[in-house]
């Protein structure tokens, strides 16, 4: 009896969340799924979802995949040394450095991208600085490199924070013990820190890989319209080509693809536990 009442109370507490999920996730998803499987005349078709295998779409999809993978990898490589350095610092300094890392996120995302556009453009700040030290200008603007820089910059904090959380929890005693038994720095990293940080790493991967895979604003602003990711194709189908069915179909296949890659990541989780961030 007591138990049941508690349960009820808890259910009521979750109401706002349930309403939110239904209104802004479930219903829109249902609409997209419905649009994906019908023709403009209303008949059933799987054409829109299978359209991902058309060469133009597949090409954009693969490019998105490459950029997302490269972005995830670079974020990982940048995050670990930073987090290890953070761990050595005193708590107050750690807090301050994390704060500095998060600070740019207080500014609007598009604004930050526009800043990168200024930095990377042909007569931009980067090429101006290179000019001072006598290096010829780098033609980075409007290439996939500038898109990669954009996504790495934007999503790096989402890799750092979960890894930091996982590594900060590692008991100092364990590391002391390893040292006592003669383990060197690399062995400690390989045998202790890396395995114990896996849950954080996994949620970091998800939070970096998925948005960089599906993004279209970054390629719009930093790609100069020359680079087409799958997100751009979908956006165009909705806003320019007025083909919501194809747009929805491609979104559904993109979702399926992301789910598959996530299932793959989760399967490789040796502990079977996930960091609860996502």
């Amino acid at each position: 009896m007591e138990n049941k009442r508690k349960l009820n109370k808890r259910t009521w507490f979750s109401m706002p969340y349930i309403l939110w999920i239904i209104g802004f996730t479930v219903i829109p998803l249902l609409v997209i799924f419905q649009d994906a499987f019908v023709t403009p005349e209303g008949g059933f078709t799987a054409q829109n979802v299978l359209a991902i295998f058309e060469p133009v779409h597949l090409k954009s999809m693969l490019l998105s995949l490459e950029i997302a993978l490269a972005c995830t990898l670079i974020c990982m490589l940048l995050a670990y040394p930073l987090v290890l350095a953070l761990r050595r610092l005193k708590l107050g300094r750690q807090g301050f450095l994390l704060f500095v890392l998060i600070l740019p996120m207080w500014m609007n995302f598009i604004l930050r991208l526009l800043a990168w556009q200024m930095i990377l453009s042909k007569n931009g700040i980067l090429n101006m600085l290179l000019g001072f030290i006598g290096i010829s200008p780098l033609p980075i603007a409007n290439t996939w490199i500038s898109i990669l820089i954009g996504v790495v910059y934007d999503y790096l904090p989402f890799m750092i924070l979960p890894i930091y959380n996982a590594i900060a929890e590692i008991d100092e005693d364990i590391i002391e013990a390893a040292k006592d038994l003669g383990a060197g720095g690399f062995t400690i990293f390989k045998k202790i820190i890396l395995p114990l940080s896996v849950p954080g790493l996994l949620s970091g991967i998800v939070m970096v890989f998925v948005p960089s895979m599906t993004s279209f604003v970054v390629s719009d602003v930093l790609g100069g319209g020359k680079i087409q990711l799958i997100g751009n194709v979908i956006e165009q189908e909705f806003t320019k080509n007025v083909d919501w069915n194809l747009g929805s179909g491609l979104s559904v296949s993109l979702m399926i693809f992301v789910l598959i890659s996530m299932a793959f990541t989760m399967k490789n989780d040796p502990e079977g536990k996930e960091s609860a961030i996502w």
Partner: peptide, 14 residues
């Protein structure tokens, strides 16, 4: 024609 142009556009951009 609109469909064809949309397709050509995507091909060009890809």
């Amino acid at each position: 024609t609109t469909k064809l142009m949309n397709y050509l556009w995507k091909e060009l951009k890809a």
